[in-house]
Design a protein around this nucleic acid. Sequence first.
DNA 1: ACAAAAGTGTTCCAAGTACACCCATGG
DNA 2: CCATGGGTGTACTTGGAACACTTTTGT
Lengths: 295, 295
Amino acid sequence: MILNKQGQTEEEFLAVYNPDEFEKPSVSVDVLLFAIATIENPDVRKLADKKLQVLLVQRDNHPYIGQWAIPGGFVGMNENLNDAALRELREETAVDNVYIEQLYTWGDLGRDPRTRVISTSYMALINKNSCRLQAGTDVVDARWFDVNINIIEEDEKNEADSTITQKVVELVLKTQDITCKARIKETITIINRFTTSKLEIIEQDNISFDHAKIIYYGLMRMRNKIEYTDIAFSLLPNEFTLAELQLVYEIILGKTFTKPNFQRKIRNMVLETDKFEGGAHRPARLFRFNKDWGK
Amino acid sequence: MILNKQGQTEEEFLAVYNPDEFEKPSVSVDVLLFAIATIENPDVRKLADKKLQVLLVQRDNHPYIGQWAIPGGFVGMNENLNDAALRELREETAVDNVYIEQLYTWGDLGRDPRTRVISTSYMALINKNSCRLQAGTDVVDARWFDVNINIIEEDEKNEADSTITQKVVELVLKTQDITCKARIKETITIINRFTTSKLEIIEQDNISFDHAKIIYYGLMRMRNKIEYTDIAFSLLPNEFTLAELQLVYEIILGKTFTKPNFQRKIRNMVLETDKFEGGAHRPARLFRFNKDWGK
DNA sequence: ACAAAAGTGTTCCAAGTACACCCATGG
DNA sequence: CCATGGGTGTACTTGGAACACTTTTGT
């Protein structure tokens, strides 16, 4: 039986431990929900287009009342943090299959005008066909917003042992009738051999809290991870054509590939099926994910 | 002036907002501090060896009294989360240069027997020569532990549309006279095209809370990031020989390279100096980090 | 027949891997 | 002079990038 400096056993210590001795911040989780929307082309002879979308909910109370926010809420005292994220996800959509990962924990002072809130953000990637929005279960209005990012300005200060890169990007989120906008400044500083990076919102419109930063951070994470993981497949149905897969890569990376190069890039990650999907032209072979691609 | 459903303006709402309506978890930060130790070889003709080390502190109160833990503490109500991590770092070491990044936020119930604690872990990489331990400023005893991981067991269940990989690893942390051990089970599940992974501690000795999991998670993050970032250089002084750099890569990745292949791998990341470091043999050229390697 | 999309082949270059080899130093 | 480590060259393979080309379909 080990005693502490106050001469208490562990049982005694725990019995008198007062968790409320110090003031505590509030803790919330936010779930960034991304999906790919398929936009059928009116001209049947042309291929359907795709867009990246994010799910936002409209705030029905102060602060930022009427503006749009990433779905989220406070963490219950008796639920795991990850479970809180899954709960938030299920409150928005009835999903059978999801990819979900923890993104980042945001803990700056003043990010919420109500009180000190530390918020852990998660990112979920879903296939829009295999899920439906929980229509009006809550009072909240949830909508899918098309995601666009434009680089506004890029600037680099290069000195002998430091490089400071600043980039201003504009994040534009749109539904048919609603637009949210934000300008975010990303600063990457290399001093000697140490790199640090920072995100700041320099202006925003119709989007709540620091959520523009979170969305941008999620987009960058996707962009990184699509290069060395299989997250792209979470955004597609079980079976897909190579053209669809290519579009997903192009949308997330914001660049285009040529067909042969792309197909060799992802060759090992897919398996042929003997099914075909007929368009107005030569039918495309359907492929499925090869879970053993890494071996 | 927008009113909410209760007819309040934003000012009115904020004035009556009660952050303590619901019980809140405690929030802490932990800072995993890694460094490379140089172990001079008694035989002057042989090269100095290197080891990866992690800094742990001895707990001086319940729970886990006397056992070892990652340095950390509760987040102040008036400090940013990142600042809290930097404060914890400075409480342990006087460092001029560090690489620090947020790792993960751990929020399972029961991870701390005192109360519900959600903990954000950071990972810092330092060069041991350019910092000194804050000797006895606090009552806490801090020590550098050699880090070793051994794979105990690896098992894969492969079915048509799922693969479950389970790996049991043993984490051994050692100083001259202290040893901490833990066995961790890592489960990676691929069902259809969705991957999830999970860490569990299956047994532990002399190491507190779920900290073994955090250390293992940090090691895996380093292993990933050393492949596509320049974090290795944070662990070395400004000028270093290629053999030193190679050892750092080998220690973190747990595998060896041949000299010519390694040198081509990192060719673009380093710049020659005209300095040499004389050993008992042909002097080795010193190199420095090339901050423009990515361009 | 032709537009639109599916799908293949060829060449070039960069990077990883596996070798074999020479150079410099001090004990 | 030789053990030990520093440093270089060559050949093979793999994966990405650029480009030109054939095939299949519905309208």
